[in-house]
């Protein structure tokens, strides 16, 4: 996945900058941490339209789930006329369902639960993946590594959806956090493998070897690099995992396998579909509105991951360009721009 790393790192720079004999002050450290993890990604996000649009869509839904639920009352049966058409009244701009509940209110009140699921699922699967990947990478070649990788390979080939269906059918989870955790069960192995190979490639870089020879413990070298180099993968995969959790949770609600205890886009779709909404134009908005929400939110997440991916790649390339200036280049691109 990652590009080959340049081996022309300047050792001196590295030490001057990072393994300073005088420890940085706490303020500096915090500042640098913020710079690396908050400011830089934000600046990057603004630079790529895909990341920007994706981020905007995500922010819109976050607003819906936080501010929206304050502004719009929780829908109850009989709030409005049954099966009202959309775009007719400000009280129910998207129309109503067979119980007279405004559709827009249902959409809005389904968002917090959705985000809780996504959050729980993404944290569990990405966190677990990072843990397994880093440990396996550190312990490369040992028994621990091979055990962890065998587990990963086993989980990767178990058909996830049927397993999740069986588990949810038995435990009937109602709390969105728990649903998210269940859905995260089969999502981690791919990222775990990526993280592991990333750790391995960092280990193989020549400056790491050199630092090791010079007596700097491997763990401290890796700790510093892993944080910065894994961030892209974790963020991109976090976005993709979130999309998958949306797909699966809505799917399970749509099927009616998860208990209908909260508002959920999938529940809306289920009730509408069971009511033959496809053949009844007056019920169609009830079916289409949640579908559009699912599409938009996933689209936002996919765009975000794409934008991040290309931006991180660009940054990687830029760093290469800077550090490998002296290397002779044989490709035509550099000849064309005179950059070798």
């Amino acid at each position: 996945m990652s590009e080959a790393h340049s081996d022309s790192f300047d050792l001196k720079d590295l030490y001057d900058e990072d393994i300073d004999p005088d420890p940085e002050s706490r303020a500096d450290r915090t500042k640098r941490f913020l710079e690396m993890n908050v400011v830089a990604p934000a600046r990057i996000a603004v630079a790529d339209w895909r990341a920007l649009v994706g981020g905007a869509i995500l922010a819109f839904f976050l607003l819906m789930g936080t501010v929206g639920v304050w502004l719009v009352e929780r829908p109850t049966s009989g709030d409005a006329p049954v099966l009202a058409a959309p775009f007719e009244s400000l009280a129910y701009p998207l129309g109503t369902d067979v119980f007279g509940q405004p559709i827009h209110a249902q959409l809005i009140h389904a968002t917090p639960g959705m985000f809780k699921m996504i959050f729980a699922g993404a944290v569990v699967s990405v966190g677990f993946a990072a843990l397994v990947g880093v440990v396996a990478g550190f312990e490369h070649g040992t028994r621990i590594d091979s055990i962890l990788m065998t587990i990963t390979d086993v989980v990767i080939t178990i058909p996830g959806l049927p397993l999740i269906i069986v588990i949810t059918a038995i435990f009937q989870p109602e709390n969105p956090y728990i649903v998210g955790v269940f859905l995260g069960i089969d999502n981690w192995p791919g990222l775990a493998r990526t993280v592991r190979s990333q750790v391995l490639s960092i280990r193989e870089e020549s400056y790491v070897e050199a630092s090791e020879i010079m007596g700097i413990p491997l763990s401290s070298i890796l700790r510093r690099d892993i944080l910065s180099q894994l961030m892209p993968y974790v963020m991109i995969n976090g976005a993709l995992t979130s999309r998958r959790i949306i797909f699966e949770s809505v799917g399970l609600y749509f099927l009616g396998i998860l208990p209908f205890t909260t508002f959920n886009w999938g529940v809306m779709m289920n009730l509408a579909y069971e009511g033959n909404a496809l053949t009844r134009p007056d019920m169609l908005p009830w079916m289409v509105a949640p579908m559009v929400c699912i599409f938009l939110l996933s689209f936002g997440l996919v765009l975000l991951s794409q934008g991040l991916d290309s931006l991180f790649n660009v940054r990687l390339r830029a760093r290469h360009a800077k550090t490998s200036k002296k290397g002779t280049s044989k490709n035509n691109q550099s000849q064309a721009t005179g950059g070798d």
Partner: peptide
Amino acid sequence: IIGLNSIPYYIVGVVLIYFLAI
């Protein structure tokens, strides 16, 4: 493709039913 990947496959199914079967 990005658009298609943002639609869950079962919704693709529902849309197909609506347009091609109903």
